[in-house]
Design a protein around this nucleic acid. Structure first.
Lengths: 210, 210
DNA sequence: TTCACAATTGATGAACCTGTCAGAGGTGGC
DNA sequence: GCCACCTCTGACAGGTTCATCAATTGTGAA
């Protein structure tokens, strides 16, 4: 019987990858807690349980590390949304589920969500994370006539901004799932759905988390 | 003939106020340029054309100064919007004008607008700046039946987030006034206006800047 | 003019942060 | 087992930031 093939051939690469990931994870935690990048490299290395000098084996500057940490968190967030919405056909329901799921993730994955709230907006039009997924759904909805949109970019900015506004409200005031439904309803109206239809789609049962 | 009465009685207070305002203004510029607060107190004092020690006569920490700078900019932004919208009766038109004006201000007052984009969202539900003004207009519109809203707080988060999304899009891609009209139209839909009416209000002539 | 008081100023030393580097320790080929 | 190679590690020097404080300058009243 053969051993399960390890993901990488040799231990050099695995050891290296482990150190790097420890640094990224520490940076994500710090970012989610304090919201800024002022922690010293010493502190980051200590929280990653890694020697100080190791930092410079992986990143040239602190900015480089935090950029990697943000990208890491946004990609994880996008994949979480994808895993739930990939089997939904109606683009309106996809948007609605994404909005409502975002609020649930704020409770179950607070660290990822904090980074989305604090750093997500500049990435809405980037080619990773939430942006391209939402853009794809907006285009599908527009082509099929379900959404009434003139400029998809403006709509994407509005939807992305509104979702981050919801996270902000949640952080500031602590809201419940009902607020997620209402935000989804408002966003569906924004996309051109009639009032009643927006309400109906926004209150459909949410797909189960995997 | 009497001298025009100075705003403050003695020069002690005026001198002090001048130093403080120079520091706040320098902090605003730095915030708008770099987006972060990592500049040293030495650098801030130099840009304010003020001695290093003077900083500590007015602020205990750098955070305190930057908080004051953000509050200063948001209040200025709110007053700019007020000065244009105060004579508008229709709450839908007030919201529309505020959205479209925000994009104009991004060109004429880039420094204020950058701070709104970077730091505005956490203040949407505060009691200064844009928040209370928008909340007031939302309440008026809801009471009069022009807006169809269940939870005003959620709507405020959505509107605030969408506006900051517009500023983000402008910073990233450089958009024109047409995008402001489209964003206004989307936000009016969100508030419950029918498609045609949202379009009509969003394309009305904008009041002149003072 | 003289005086008391308030605000400003930059020098100072302690604390901190960064990037480097030589040595230690783990890894795989032979 | 041995050796070349790769990664990790923390001490160190050089530079920067911070908060304090004694001296200086500006202000208004007598």
């Amino acid at each position: 019987m053969q051993k399960p093939t390890p993901q990488t051939a040799n231990r050099f690469e695995r050891r290296r990858a482990h150190s790097r990931q420890a640094l990224v994870t520490a940076a994500r935690r710090i970012l989610a807690e304090s919201g800024d990048t002022s922690a010293s490299i010493q502190e980051i290395a200590a929280r990653a349980d890694v020697g100080f000098g190791t930092f410079y084996n992986h990143f040239a500057t602190k900015t480089e590390l935090f950029d990697a940490a943000v990208a890491d968190a946004l990609e994880e967030y996008g994949q979480l949304l994808d895993s739930v919405t990939q089997h939904i056909d109606d683009p309106a329901e996809t948007i609605s589920a994404s909005v409502r799921l975002t609020l649930i993730l704020a409770a179950t994955h607070p660290e990822v969500t904090q980074i989305v709230r604090l750093r997500g907006l500049p990435h809405v039009h980037a080619d990773t994370g939430l942006g391209p997924r939402a853009l794809r759904d907006l285009e599908v909805g527009r082509t099929s006539g379900r959404f009434v949109l003139d400029d998809t970019k403006v709509a994407l900015s509005a939807v992305g901004g509104a979702m981050i506004g919801l996270l902000q409200l949640n952080t500031a005031a602590g809201i419940d799932a009902k607020a997620g439904e209402q935000m989804a309803e408002l966003i569906l109206r924004l996309l051109g759905l009639p009032l009643e239809e927006a309400h109906e789609v926004a209150t459909r049962p949410l797909p189960q988390l995997p």
